[in-house]
Design a protein around this nucleic acid. Structure first.
Lengths: 207, 207
DNA sequence: GCACATAATGAACAGTGTTCATTCCATGGC
DNA sequence: GCCATGGAATGAACACTGTTCATTATGTGC
């Protein structure tokens, strides 16, 4: 074979990519239904009709499967956040929508959120840089929203970075609470989220 | 033996409680250092010099060990929070001190905090009632602080529970961020904490 | 038809949480 | 002192986990 891009090679690659997608689809469904820890490689293999070992031809390890799913999902979040940050209208209201979007995303995709933002401190070397990169890009949109609020003179604070980080803490906090303390008798979720957003927005608004 | 409370029985009970505490101590240390998932029953058993099976004479399962540790941490925090909630002075300022104390506790005891508040999701049917109870009691002080703010007419919101939970989310968020994202280029820590507290307090203050 | 490269396999390995028949041993009665 | 008793401790065993790797199958190019 003198060419790397023969007809047959292309076909093989397509088939390989197909199985990869089947594995991802199976894993996505099982993770969402039963949680990451409860889903074994063998369960994923069975669901997509291949042997356990085969999965390791497509993914380095179990974590990489979750990472791949996260990458997909976070691409969506990044897109939504970026879209909002480019909207017109009152900057503070844009900031509120941005926060709402962020929180909603975390609540809707708890496992993806945990992997990217909720890693334990003791873990050595932790997750891949790609995971962090995706998360940081989402934060950038929030930063831009705060920036435009300040430029419109609507901020009570001088330091944009400071406010952006405080807002991140707030939204991150409510997501983590709702995710990890699901058993706690929280007030109705939407109402709690709106109150938190209101508190945060009114807390940074210029007087 | 005609009495259930003989001298010998008391001694046996004391020895049993001692081993229980040794197991807890070993588990607390290992969980904090390596994380819940990475610590096996056998590792705990080895560290406190007993057989794996012995642990199941003192705890129903691995989750129950974590629950017991969480209870301890809740107790410490509850004590500190309760002390502040009984202080005198401006209610909103008391609330600010309360939040500061909570955040400081988390930052000072990152591993305990993580073990108690940062557990992964997906737990089937979630935690025991004992965990809920401990959490409620700990949260009660914050609730009381918010309550007295409202009674003093200093609250912009009507629902005390709602505000208390939103404040919890905010403080929890900054603790988790500072702990789990230690590598992120945060603004100077004290300044970030004070800004966040300021944002929250000003966000709920009556106009 | 044959050789070759790659994909797929599934048994095997070291680990996990948990169980349970067995052993140990301090205690109480004689 | 000796023995029976009952709870505490054991550790082998079970069914599972993520992961590896020698082996097998399969589609491709000549």
């Amino acid at each position: 074979m003198n060419s790397v891009h023969s007809m047959a090679t292309a076909r093989r690659d397509r088939l390989k990519a197909e199985l990869r997608n089947e594995i991802l689809a199976a894993a996505r469904d099982l993770f969402a239904r039963q949680g990451y820890e409860s889903v074994s490689i063998r369960k994923i293999a069975e669901k997509c009709g291949c042997a356990p070992g085969t999965i390791y031809l497509h993914f380095e390890d179990k974590d990489q499967i979750l990472s791949a799913i996260c990458a997909e999902t976070f691409a969506i979040l990044k897109q939504r956040m970026a879209a909002i940050s480019k909207d017109s209208g009152d900057p503070l209201e844009r900031l509120r929508r941005s926060g709402r979007q962020y929180i909603q995303f975390g609540v809707d995709h708890p496992y993806h959120y945990i992997v990217t933002f909720g890693v334990a401190p003791g873990a050595p070397a932790n997750k891949s840089d790609a995971d962090h990169q995706a998360g940081m890009e989402c934060f950038q949109s929030l930063r831009e929203c705060v920036q435009s609020c300040q430029q419109a003179g609507q901020l009570r604070f001088a330091d944009v970075e400071e406010v952006a980080q405080a807002l991140w803490a707030t939204t991150h906090g409510i997501v983590m609470l709702l995710i990890t303390k699901a058993g706690f008798p929280f007030v109705e979720q939407t109402r709690l989220i709106e109150t938190t957003l209101d508190m945060a927005i009114e807390g940074i608004r210029a007087r």
